[in-house]
């Protein structure tokens, strides 16, 4: 049997009669980097706060190393949190903020000094110990918040959009630093973000949430390549979502063409949604050599690739390509069977 450090079972929480977290089941392995991903208001923070012990679930169980965690108060949980707004204590300097947890545990003075200084060094905050927290930049405050949590060497670290307030460049740097740190200290990270790119680059496992429900749990590759439904496909990056008919196993029909694909297990002639990522469509200059034909209606240069909209009588396709086809030109498009992702149509039970 696999060892899980955190297990959520049928977890629910309502505010004012609205279920903001709705029967969530989730298993998290030791040292895993798990990301809760979803649009703002989908219940990520609430889920995290229940794990931290700041909200009581209405229903369901939280297990920590197999033991029920619900009745344990937050100050007794071997879990620390990096809060969305950092919540650094305004009446203490950086050193005292970081030392707080160790002082509460009444560790010997010299051990506290040693551990705090070690973590400050690790976070590139060596000379900041005596500085007041209000005098720090956003990025520095954020590192203090992480140091303050990590110095306690918790089993699980909860991070609520910790990079949300930083600018793009700093955010990218911190993503790499956080990832390095998680690998080197061996702590389970439960990370909340609404940024799909951040989730895909950092996580071992991504949990996509919407309106209090888990939509899909999987590796970043799974989530990106095999979205479960329209919501996940749409939320994880740009994609073409096409209504189609699954004729039989490995045969799907749309735009007056029958495509080979790799999906099986749908009913005969079942209505389905098909996802094709923009970079998986190959353009050919001879329309006759394409499975579908269309006209280029817009071209935008995106730095590495061109983003083109190609229209046929049924829909517009978004295509990413390093080759440019001028507006108005008639082209053909091909797609590999493995790049056609067939999903169950929402609201359609087979």
């Amino acid at each position: 049997m696999e060892k899980y450090i955190i297990e959520l079972r049928n977890l629910s929480k309502s505010y004012n009669g609205i279920k903001v977290v709705n029967s969530i089941d989730l298993k998290i392995r030791e040292n895993e980097f798990v990301t809760l991903l979803g649009p703002s208001g989908c219940g990520k923070t609430t889920t995290l706060r229940m794990i931290g012990g700041f909200e009581d679930p209405d229903e369901g169980e939280i297990l920590f190393q197999g033991k029920l965690l619900n009745p344990v108060p937050p100050y007794k949980r071997n879990i620390n949190t990096v809060f969305q707004r950092y919540a650094l204590f305004p009446h203490m300097n950086v050193f005292e903020n970081v030392a707080f947890g160790l002082r509460i545990k009444k560790l010997p003075k010299d051990e506290i000094v040693e551990r705090v200084e070690r973590i400050l060094k690790m976070m590139d905050l060596e000379n900041f110990g005596k500085r007041h927290v209000d005098s720090l930049s956003g990025g520095q405050q954020q590192r203090v918040a992480i140091a303050r949590a990590l110095v306690n060497e918790p089993k699980v670290l909860l991070l609520d959009e910790p990079l949300g307030a930083l600018d793009l460049k700093l955010r990218k740097e911190m993503q790499i630093e956080l990832l390095d740190m998680q690998r080197s200290v061996g702590i389970t990270f439960i990370y909340v973000t609404h940024d799909q790119e951040e989730a895909l680059t950092m996580s071992d496992t991504v949990v996509v949430m919407n309106q209090g429900h888990i939509q899909q749990v999987g590796t970043p590759e799974d989530i990106y390549n095999e979205p479960n439904n329209r919501f996940v496909a749409d939320f994880i990056g740009e994609s073409n979502i096409i209504e189609a008919i699954m004729l039989e196993d490995k045969k799907v029909r749309f735009d007056d063409h029958t495509f080979d694909c790799v999906d099986v297990g749908f009913g005969q002639n079942e209505p389905v949604d098909v996802v094709i990522r923009p970079e998986d469509l190959q353009i050919v200059t001879d329309p006759g050599k394409g499975m579908i034909q269309g006209t280029v209606i817009s071209v935008v240069f995106k730095g590495v690739h061109y983003e083109m909209l190609i229209e046929n009588e049924h829909r517009e396709y978004m295509v990413h390509s390093t080759l440019m086809f001028p507006e108005g030109s008639r082209v053909g498009m091909n797609v590999q069977p493995v790049d056609i992702h067939v999903m169950k149509r929402e609201g359609h039970e087979s």
Partner: peptide, 18 residues
């Protein structure tokens, strides 16, 4: 006083009295 400070203290192991 921002409630987050109290939660942060709780989170770092301080009971209500501390």
């Amino acid at each position: 006083i921002d409630k987050q400070f109290l939660e942060a203290a709780n989170d770092l192991g301080a009971n209500n009295m501390r």
